[in-house]
């Protein structure tokens, strides 16, 4: 029995490594890849290596499923574009939808759930009412949650479309307002790049730093292997396309206050996915890197979450990052009295 997700990391990094797998290991690889939402990426990555017939069929299923996800994501983005046709400001696509809309390698085979967009903070009321007019509805009609989102988060409370059953997250910046780093949202909007259909994506360094902020400055590293795979592909693509990219990345990381997170992302991507990174941008190896890797690989061959303690530690850390202690205590107290799970 495989005890961690290394087999998946190795298959992604070095596709030929799967030629040595026996039947049982193949089944374990597939379960881990599905659990980490990397099955589509894996399927595309293994397209040119010899794979046993049954496993080829499983991978082909994943490719088909993700082709449809891609089509649906682009359709959903277009629905939002039409709903917001009267809004003159930039509508910036984020995360998976941005990768497929910009036709980046990071979008190939990637699973995409919600539609994430970013607009200027002062435009939120207009955007919100336009979306409500076009059929989106509140998911959480709880007054405390609603207030919490509006006062402290980087996005509106999630909206869901009543006919298509798809969620949209409307962001005005890339990290919760309560987090330590304060990214420069205006700078992100100013340098966003037009796609040609009226929508925008972030400029390369900002796109990468958003992925990094999402993984290392927010959240508990759930889905971290997938996010780090995105980071790996974006880094490879942008640094090959533009030799000034590493400089640009360092400058932008300073602008957004994400220098340490950027360095850690580069070190971990190089370590797990062999990403060629500019050494002076990656900082010094830290003991914590080891903990991150332990957490990222915490999945066994049945697809189960393992290493409960380190998982819990990162979960606690995610709240710690999001808010100062007194506020965290107040938040957890309110949530506890409501009998809900303590999530932000």
């Amino acid at each position: 029995m495989i005890r961690d997700a290394h087999i998946l990391v190795r298959a992604l990094r070095e596709p030929a490594s799967v030629e040595r797998l026996d039947g049982g290991q193949w089944s374990e690889l597939i379960s881990i890849a599905r659990a980490e939402s990397l099955i589509g990426s894996l399927a595309h990555r293994l397209a040119d290596v010899p794979v046993p017939d049954r496993m080829r069929a499983v991978l082909q299923d994943a490719i088909g499923a993700h082709d449809l996800a891609r089509q649906q994501a682009l359709w959903e983005a277009d629905c939002a574009r039409r709903a917001l046709a009267g809004y003159p400001g930039k509508i910036v696509l984020m995360k998976g939808t941005a990768y497929v809309a910009a036709d980046l390698a990071a979008g190939v085979g990637r699973s995409i759930g919600d539609l994430d967009i970013m607009v200027a903070r002062d435009a939120l009321p207009i955007v919100e009412s336009a979306l409500l007019d076009a059929g989106w509805e509140w998911v959480k009609p709880d007054p405390y949650d609603d207030r919490y989102y509006r006062d402290h988060m980087h996005e509106l409370p999630p909206l869901i479309h009543r006919d298509r059953d798809r969620m949209i997250d409307v962001h005005h910046t890339i990290l919760p307002l309560t987090a330590g780093p304060r990214p420069d949202a205006q700078a992100i909007l100013d340098s966003a790049i037009a796609l040609g259909n009226g929508l925008y994506v972030m400029a390369p360094a900002d796109m990468l730093l958003h992925s990094i902020a999402h993984l290392f400055a927010d959240g508990d590293l759930a889905g971290g292997l997938r996010n780090l795979w995105d980071i790996n592909l974006l880094l490879r693509h942008f640094s090959e396309a533009d030799e000034e990219f590493w400089t640009e990345l360092d400058v932008r990381a300073k602008t957004h206050g994400l220098g340490r997170e950027k360095e850690r992302a580069l070190r971990l991507a190089a370590r797990l996915y062999d990403t060629p990174v500019y050494r002076f941008s990656a900082g010094q190896t830290e003991f914590a890197d080891y903990l991150y890797i332990r957490r990222l690989l915490a999945r066994d061959g049945y697809g189960r979450e393992t290493r409960k303690l380190i998982r819990f530690a990162f979960y606690v850390r995610s709240h710690w990052l999001r808010m100062p202690p007194l506020m965290l205590a107040r938040h957890l107290w309110t949530k506890w009295r409501k009998g809900g799970k303590p999530v932000g």
Binding site: D22, G23, G24, W26, S27, I30, S31, P52, R54, M55, A57, V58, Y302, G303, R304
Partner: peptide, 14 residues
């Protein structure tokens, strides 16, 4: 049984 121990799906009862 499936040939070569390869499977399409894993079910977990926990």
């Amino acid at each position: 049984g499936p040939s070569d121990h390869m499977v399409d799906f894993t079910v977990r009862l926990e």
